[in-house]
């Protein structure tokens, strides 16, 4: 099966401290992959390295069979950052956030409100970012990532701030997105989330800078 992402012998450091140690893994097209890891395990560094935000000290990354560049990343990847990484008091509405993505990507799958309506959230469109709950904001960021019709969706700690009901909605939504043929990579510290998903997802565990456990189920 052809690969969506292939990470080969990647090493990364933070200052002089090694954070990623000889990481090798690949994600097939259409897979759902969970990358598990506790605080300081290097999972955020791994995701930022795949996204081109951190340059690896050595090794290489291929996306859809091509060497990773900003252009390739922009073409194939939709990114859902941690909600805590975005300033919540930024004076911007949901409509402006999604419209901005549409304008810069020069495409707008299902229109500005289309993906929000798939999780019954089109009523959020005129709301200010500061008036959204954590779960609502998460949905907005997912909708923003989907308007560009990415082949690969990478989500950083998407389950933070979600209650059980919102979490179940998210898992259902990811399953739905995956059935459209999209590859999904989810980075999380929360093993309980992984226990709730279908057994046929891939789970990588990152521990002490090593990607040392590869399981099919948890």
């Amino acid at each position: 099966m052809s690969k969506a992402i292939e990470v080969k012998n990647v090493n990364a450091t933070y200052g002089k401290l090694p954070v990623l140690h000889d990481i090798n893994f690949s994600v097939n097209k259409g897979d759902i992959v969970y990358i598990l890891g506790g605080n300081g395990s290097g999972k955020s560094t791994l995701i930022k390295t795949i996204l081109g935000l951190i340059k690896p000290k050595s090794g290489s990354i291929e996306i859809m069979g091509q060497p990773s560049t900003q252009k390739i990343i922009s073409k194939y990847i939709g990114y859902v950052p941690q909600t805590t990484f975005v300033e919540r008091d930024f004076p911007i509405t949901v409509e402006e956030i999604i419209q901005l993505e549409c304008n810069l990507a020069r495409q707008c799958d299902l229109g500005v409100s289309g993906h929000l309506s798939t999780f019954d959230s089109e009523h959020l469109l005129k709301r200010k970012l500061s008036n959204l709950s954590g779960g609502e904001f998460q949905k907005v960021l997912i909708a923003r990532a989907l308007v560009t019709k990415p082949d690969i969706l990478i989500m950083d700690e998407p389950t933070n701030n979600l209650d059980q009901e919102a979490l179940e909605d998210l898992i259902t939504l990811l399953d739905k997105i995956n059935k459209q043929g999209k590859t999904i990579i989810i980075v999380t510290h929360d093993e309980t989330v992984v226990r709730q998903v279908d057994a046929d997802v891939k789970i990588f565990e990152l521990k002490n800078s090593y990607l040392n456990i590869l399981k099919k189920t948890i």
Binding site: L51, P81, V86, F90
Partner: peptide, 16 residues
Amino acid sequence: LYATFDPEAAYIRGIN
């Protein structure tokens, strides 16, 4: 605006 609001996502969107 994008780079101010969410610099990492802006980079991934192809913005320098």
